[in-house]
Design a binder for these strands. Structure first.
Lengths: 204, 204
DNA sequence: CACTAAATAGACAAACCGGTCTATTTGTTC
DNA sequence: GAACAAATAGACCGGTTTGTCTATTTAGTG
């Protein structure tokens, strides 16, 4: 009980590697052999921890979801206003894009969106998990919009739910365009317009 | 000269099938054998018309681009106002989502976006081609916004270029969320907010 | 130390991958 | 019909795919 089991370090390495490879190359393009090689793990170990590649995928998606929610909440938590919390979330998205660009030369886009776009149509399990994660995200945005309206930083004429969904769509669009154009500056431009138009400050 | 060469019908069948399979299952998940089987074509014929799977991919992307641009232009051409042209384009996007949902049970999303999201990071050829297509689309939107401003149907305070990119991001986000949520109604909601906020009518 | 379960190791298998190759059929032109 | 190119046909190839299997090592517990 006093230490984290060292055996599970292998499992974590597999998950880390899979998370990274799936996001940059996609699920179908990554083989188990390649994955094990990159993770420094042997095939016997992989199939000891995961019954199948599909099971690994589900674990990766759940990990993506929980990590992303933690990050979004932790970056927006310090802000006391709903509007500022959303700005902080968008800044985190942009910072992540720039970080990947600097580290690997490529904007990688959204962890959830990339896999969802590739697999949701042909894999109902992935589709359901992705939808669940997106819904959680949307509810976070919606709560922040409502709080922003309450505190007077967002015009009361905006519909919180519809606006949250629209914001989520913009973020996912930024992911797709980011992967293609590979240009963080373009993403910042999109985010700027989105905030300006979707979250107008009240006239006074 | 008097008839279209019947030989090229095979090539067209291959392209049609590939276009459909790539959009629903992704590029990596579709094998040549499966493709030939679905197209009713034998492997010798496939490699007679296409030197490789990658070459087929390039042809499919170019086809996606040109078909999409034709559709967007033809649906917006009858409208004489820039704002109405964009509304017509969004209606076409929504109609396409509903049509796929009714026909196959699945919202398939954007032809360009799905492949771009899957492959742009790991395939520079695809990335360049996708970027080219997206840029063309963005310029179309930008021209319509400028026309709308000129004719007074869109407030002059909007930045045509930035707004066009933002609109494109929303459409791509609709694609990703559409594939995941599989709900055309949600997409319509997003489009409604996007138009309302990004393309405001001038106060008078 | 003895016993047991977890983890590691990697050879192996059947199916499938993209792609090649040789034949044969089809269509066109003289 | 002869000659030639385009298209079709599918057997075949080496490599890779996901997943299995047995054996061995490691770690924990009495």
């Amino acid at each position: 009980m006093q230490t984290t089991e060292p055996s599970h370090l292998t499992r974590e390495k597999i998950l880390d590697t899979a998370q990274s490879l799936f996001q940059s190359q996609g699920y179908s393009a990554v083989g188990i052999n390649r994955l094990c090689l990159d993770a420094g793990v042997v095939k016997g170990s992989f199939y000891h921890f995961f019954p199948s590649k599909q099971a690994l995928l589900s674990a990766v998606i759940e990990r993506n979801r929980s990590q992303l929610m933690d990050e979004l909440k932790s970056t927006s938590e310090p802000e006391n206003d709903g509007r500022k919390r959303i700005l902080a979330q968008l800044s985190a998205v942009l910072a992540s894009a720039e970080e990947h660009k600097n580290a690997s030369g490529c904007v990688l886009g959204c962890r959830l969106g990339s896999l969802a776009s590739e697999l949701a149509v042909s894999n109902e399990t992935v589709r359901t998990a992705s939808t669940h994660a997106f819904t959680e995200w949307q509810e976070l945005l919606e709560a922040d919009i409502e709080a922003g309206i309450g505190s007077g930083s967002i015009t009361a004429t905006v519909n919180p739910k519809a606006t949250a969904v629209c914001l989520l769509a913009i973020i996912q669009g930024m992911s797709t365009l980011g992967r293609s154009f590979n240009d963080p500056v373009m993403l910042a431009q999109i985010a700027r317009i989105a905030v300006k138009r979707l979250l107008p400050v009240p006239a006074h």
